[in-house]
Amino acid sequence: MESLISSDTRSSEGPRATDTSAAAVAAARMGASDVLVFAHTHGRSHLLLGGVGLGEAWAGTVAVEERDEPRFVAATEGQTLRIQQDEPVRIVGPYYASSAALVPADGVVVGRGRGHPDGRRH
């Protein structure tokens, strides 16, 4: 089984067309430049394990606490959230996007979107 965590897939334009990892292929099919995979670590904390684009770049450096992340908590409780805004909004941790989704999947939460780090536009 191929891992959701890919390697060497980051570019300023999102996943490379030549990357065939499962995460990169899924991201490309969804039109997402970023896929972020979070897993529960302890208490009410979650760590970004990896993904595609910013998910890969930020792997292991982003931890979120549920008390600070109402959208994320809904996903940990089994809800799929879709966010569509005219301007970028904070989705989870330092990740901003105008279009995104948070999806619970087999004990992890997967975020996907066309990101805007720290609220900046591409």
Rank of each mutant, 00 (worst) to 15 (best):
T61W: 13
G31K: 05
T41L: 10
A59D: 10
F38P: 01
E69Q: 15
A74I: 01
E66S: 10
S45V: 06
S45C: 11
T76V: 12
R71H: 14
E56F: 02
R29L: 10
P70M: 09
L54N: 02
E66Y: 00
V35H: 04
A28E: 06
E66C: 10
R29D: 09
V73P: 03
V64S: 05
M30D: 08
L48F: 12
G53M: 04
E66H: 06
T41Y: 09
A28T: 07
V52C: 06
V62T: 12
G50R: 05
E56K: 07
E56H: 10
L49Y: 11
A27F: 04
R67P: 00
D68H: 11
E65N: 15
L54V: 02
L49C: 14
L47E: 12
E65F: 06
G55C: 12
E69S: 09
G31E: 08
E65S: 15
T41Q: 13
D68V: 05
V73E: 08
P70G: 05
G53C: 01
L81H: 01
G78Q: 05
E56R: 09
E65P: 03
V73L: 14
G43E: 15
A57R: 11
E69T: 09
R44I: 04
G53E: 01
A32C: 02
T80V: 15
G60P: 13
M30G: 00
A74H: 10
E56W: 08
A28L: 05
H46S: 15
A57E: 06
G50V: 12
A32H: 00
L81E: 01
G78E: 11
T41P: 02
H46Q: 10
G31W: 01
A59Q: 09
D34I: 01
A74D: 04
V64I: 14
A75W: 01
L81C: 04
G78A: 08
V35G: 03
A74C: 09
L48W: 08
G60E: 13
E56S: 07
T41M: 09
W58F: 14
T41W: 03
L54E: 11
D34G: 06
A74K: 13
A39L: 08
F72Q: 00
F38N: 04
L36F: 06
G55W: 07
V37I: 10
T76N: 01
R67H: 13
H42S: 14
H42T: 14
G51F: 05
A57T: 10
T61A: 11
P70K: 05
V35R: 06
R67Y: 08
R67V: 12
V52H: 02
L47V: 08
V52I: 15
G53F: 00
T41C: 14
R67F: 07
E56D: 13
P70V: 12
A63K: 07
V73M: 02
E66A: 15
G50I: 04
E77M: 13
G43Q: 14
P70A: 09
A59M: 10
W58A: 08
A28D: 05
G55A: 10
Q79N: 08
V35E: 02
G55F: 02
L47R: 12
E66G: 01
W58C: 09
V62W: 07
W58G: 00
A39G: 13
R29K: 11
V37M: 03
G50A: 09
